[in-house]
Design a binder for these strands. Structure first.
Lengths: 250, 250
DNA sequence: ACTTGGTAGACTGTCTACCAAGTGCCATGC
DNA sequence: GCATGGCACTTGGTAGACAGTCTACCAAGT
């Protein structure tokens, strides 16, 4: 995630329509790699070799390098000089810290959103709440998760603060990576909270909005912990072979 | 700023002392460039050409490219494909947003710092307050600013949340760049606030610490605005020659 | 059994050279 | 004055080379 940058998707002076500019390769590579990390194709701890990825994606080393460096800056991979990149292995306390950071960022966003909310925004929020709840009740997990993401993203954008937007997006993506298995569990409660949140925003009640958002995130963290604690005793997962570098292919 | 990464400066299992490993060139280039941007050697809006920088720093294009991309991701420069990088020119509202983000991040940090404060940390904070105030009274601007930075940095680190640390550091550096001229003006009040803040932290009063930090940052923002408003009418600075590309040197 | 030394292969970090395509500037021509 | 076309410049990407470093592994030596 580019820390600061308009990007072609961002808001532009109305009416300006840039012709299709082919995305820089490094961008596509970056996208492809995060994708593969999130969906598990590149499993945690795996040694990523530049030429290998280059071959896989049909590009040369350079764009791959650039993408890897960005991934490193954003914590998706760890770059060890002279050795290469390994897919990041999240530490025990990392999800916790991530969720704490998210609480701060999104709570502040909610406060500012409440301050600046336009009629239009509120309408969109209400709509998202409605469809989200519907999905949830229908048991469509994927759609629910997606809608949840859209709702949160819209709120941060409503803050009008591009730094908050950017940091929150960064954190959010990481959270979703670690956290996917937990997401479904607390569906119903989550959407009740969303509704209260949107209400507070529409009323312009900053403190209340910030407060609700903070509790909302806090509940999420709690849910993660409970799930973790429940899974703990059961799982003493594979002895986890050290990240061996494969020997010659000959 | 590396979003996540231990780095050689991070805490290590006591007693481990790695030998000096030569930093990758791209890193040094990155450092050199931020340095030059902050101290104004590379003025805002300036057109940065890869080969030029490469020559200037005595390296090849490659490390320069990589450094520029990171600078772009972090908002120090804007990369225009096919043209080159320009040193970022802060928008009107950017400082404001930056300070708002900082308020959220540091306020949360202060809260967590109050929660986890150790005797040692508190002692260090007190010391910093003391010397900071002394510098301030002695009129040593540079030392005051530096100590201020150290104090804030220590507090974020005390939060124990590496994401907060990291984001805050990123924001802080940007703020310091835009903001340097303002820093001196509100010296005395600022250090009184620091003292109250440290007291709250040492007492473990989370809410109070967060509250004070937020107000502290808010005052800073106000100071910036006042100064801005005062300077506005006076300054209609140079017509600002468009970033000309120099024609051939032959 | 444990250390030491040596070897080999695998990668990265960096450099050089090169080409295609896009961008902005300038001068020409109307 | 203003459009137009050309031109120089710069990036984005590719390819190949080379040194330095890191890992694993093997073979003596203790």
């Amino acid at each position: 995630m580019t820390t600061i940058s308009a990007g072609p998707g961002a808001a532009e002076p109305a009416g300006v329509r840039h012709v299709k500019r082919p995305t820089p390769l490094r961008e596509s590579v970056y996208e492809a790699l995060t994708e593969m990390i999130i969906d598990g194709t590149l499993e945690r701890g795996r040694h990523l070799v530049e030429v290998e990825l280059a071959g896989l994606l049909g590009v040369s080393r350079q764009p791959v390098r650039e993408a890897l460096q960005r991934l490193n800056n954003e914590g998706w991979v760890d770059l060890r000089p002279g050795f290469g990149a390994m897919v990041h292995v999240p530490a025990e306390d990392e999800v916790d810290q991530l969720l704490a950071a998210r609480a701060a960022l999104e709570s502040e966003s909610a406060r500012l959103a409440a301050r600046h909310a336009s009629k239009d925004d509120v309408a969109k929020l209400r709509e998202l709440c409605k469809v989200g709840t519907a999905y949830q009740e229908a048991g469509d997990i994927d759609a629910t998760v997606r809608t949840n993401g859209e709702l949160h993203s819209l709120i941060t954008q409503m803050s009008g603060n591009r730094f908050l937007v950017d940091f929150a997006a960064q954190v959010d993506r990481r959270v979703r990576w670690y956290y996917t298995p937990v997401a479904p569990v607390r569906g119903a409660a989550s959407w009740r909270e969303h509704n209260r949140l949107v209400k507070a925003i529409s009323e312009g009640d900053e403190d209340k909005a910030a407060q609700i958002m903070r509790e909302h995130t806090e509940h999420t963290r709690k849910a993660y912990h409970d799930l973790q604690a429940a899974a703990e005793p059961a799982a003493a997962p594979e002895p986890e072979a050290a990240p061996r570098r494969r020997r010659r292919t000959t």
